[in-house]
Amino acid sequence: MNKNLIIISERNDKSTNNVLEWLDYYDIDFERKNVDSDRSDFCIRISTQETTTSVSDCIVWNRRGYMSLLPTHLKKSEWIGYLKKEQFPVLATLEKSNPKNYIGSYVHELENNKLNNLQAAAKVGLEIPKTIVTNNKQDLLNFVEVNKKYITKSLVYSPFLEKKDCYYKGNGTIVVDFEKVSEYFAPSLIQEYIDKEIEIRIFFILDNFYAMAIFSQNDLKTQIDFRNYNDVSPNRCVPFELEATTLAKIKEFVSLIGCNSGSIDLILTPENKFVFLEINPMGQYHWLSESCNYYVDKHIAELLIEKVVYE
């Protein structure tokens, strides 16, 4: 008998819709739980023999967000901050109760610590940018070399500032201007700027790896961060074939940090070295799939079906 297939996502996620259309094409039943609208009933039983949960026997694709376990009336409660915190260990247990058949991970998304990832990448032999995390200018100046450029980006969370009538959100990378750095500051990650020949975006899910080359260097707007899109003449994005040794290291890396799906950013330097930048456990792949005509949606549907039918 087929296993139940649960898909956790957001209401308006286009990639989810695309995958579901393929599941429908293959006539496979599924249950979609939208984290922004549906409450999910669940249960965890712990005993001396074993721990069983509502998802231990299912195939789960956690595409976006996390299962909402709170009743609607509590979502506006002033206790919401506390209740959400209490929810996280539950989510972690649900995910861990079924590691082989739980694809994607909100826990990873939440705890996506760039420091751990950099260490893991270095451990498997991937090149990484020289990195420092500090809260004072003296240590920073001892670290930097003259005539080199340095960048800073967030450690885990995207910067977010909420004001009465507006908010500021940033998720990019900026070049450090040492003249503006104060003596003491909040703990910050600073990395050597890596010259790029091209940027490589890799999406992976289970054993399927898809790579795309982004030619961001012909355009001043996108040199530091390709997310500063140029809509008139978009960066060239084309299929890329990772050579076997780099691909093997990437596979070792994702298995070391225990991630079974996500997006990885690499840089190919003018000296033809691949440098690991970061991994996003719930990264978008639509852009990569469309640009390279990869049909990732269809492949995801097929690998879910394989699990539903044969596991």
Binding site: E21, W22, D24, Y25, A213, F215, N218, S233, R236, V238, P239, F240, E241, L242, E243, N272, C292, N293, Y294, Y295, K298
Partner: peptide, 22 residues
Amino acid sequence: EYVFFTHHPNWFPKMGLQWQDP
């Protein structure tokens, strides 16, 4: 911007021309 120069042409495969629709 139709072409570029590279030391590793084999890293840049042709785009697959498959067409599929559910």
